[in-house]
């Protein structure tokens, strides 16, 4: 018979030694769900946010006005419903509902990706809409005034700034997702919480196991938060600029940073 450890620390070491693969796999699944869910959620949020800010004009045709109106109504229903219900309940409804209503037997993992993405999408849609509104309208007008269409102005001028402004919210969502994917244990997704519960059950060492789990969650969220900070800094670009000395007209190619003129990517010469 093996000798059981005594004391908190020796239990922790014992459990780590025995279940590190389980912890690691659980953490991996959690991270995967959070990253993929946040990424797809951001894309959903972008699309919804952009559609929700399409201007309608008195001169547009009745059909155009009504179809845009209907789409916007459906999208805001989506946002309200998925923001207004708990993810744990959404997981149950999607996983078991798809089976009993539509006879779709999706894997728990697939249901997990679906629920996290759709949920994040609902939150991000509002963030994106806010981000778009926060870019001063003058820039949109200036873009339109040099002949850009609404969508050109959106993608070239407004969205890049809106995205920069909502970076903190994207980070927030990632961190929330790392933690909140734990609710997916109700549909038996083998993420970190689910794995921990299995490990804890063997020796009934709930405190020691969940202490380890706690540390792993914190390491993941803290790392994510720091990495996002660095990324934000990078997006801002250099805080100073190089004055171009002399006469840039004489040899324009020589003066641009990063070969922006006469550089590699002009295929039409």
């Amino acid at each position: 018979m093996e000798t059981m450890p005594t004391g908190f620390l020796s239990w922790v070491i014992f459990l780590l030694d025995k279940y590190w693969v389980l912890f690691l796999k659980g953490a991996g699944v959690t991270l995967l769900l959070a990253l993929v869910g946040t990424f797809i959620g951001c894309i959903i949020g972008l699309v919804v946010g952009v559609i929700q800010t399409i201007p309608v004009n008195k001169n547009d045709t009745l059909l155009k006005r009504h179809s845009i109106g209907l789409v916007k109504w459906l999208l805001s229903a989506y946002v309200e419903i998925f923001r207004g219900t708990p993810m744990i309940v959404q997981a149950m409804v999607v996983y078991y509902g798809s089976m009993s209503m539509f006879n779709i037997d999706m894997s728990a993992m697939f249901a997990g990706f679906l629920v996290v993405s759709i949920n994040t999408g609902a939150y991000m849609a509002e963030s994106v809409r806010g981000g778009i509104i926060s870019v001063d309208d003058g820039q949109r007008e200036a873009a339109v005034a040099i002949g850009m269409t609404h969508f050109q102005a959106m993608f070239a001028v407004i969205l890049p700034q809106a995205l920069r402004n909502i970076m903190p919210q994207i980070g927030n969502n990632l961190i929330i997702n790392i933690k909140d994917t734990s609710v997916l244990n109700v549909i038996s997704v083998t993420e970190l919480y689910f794995s921990s519960k299995s490990a804890a059950g063997v020796y009934y060492r709930y405190f020691e196991v969940f202490f380890i789990t706690c540390v792993i969650y914190f390491v993941m969220t803290f790392t994510a938060s720091r990495l996002l900070r660095i990324w934000e800094k990078k997006m801002d670009g250099p805080s100073d600029y190089q004055l171009v000395e002399g006469d840039p007209m004489q040899d324009p190619c020589g003066y641009f940073q990063h070969g922006t003129v006469g550089g590699k990517d002009n295929g039409n010469d």
Binding site: Y241, L243, V244, E245, D247, P248, M249, Y255, F256, Q257
Partner: peptide, 8 residues
Amino acid sequence: MANYINAK
């Protein structure tokens, strides 16, 4: 403003 092409 040709000297300022790289400024934001």
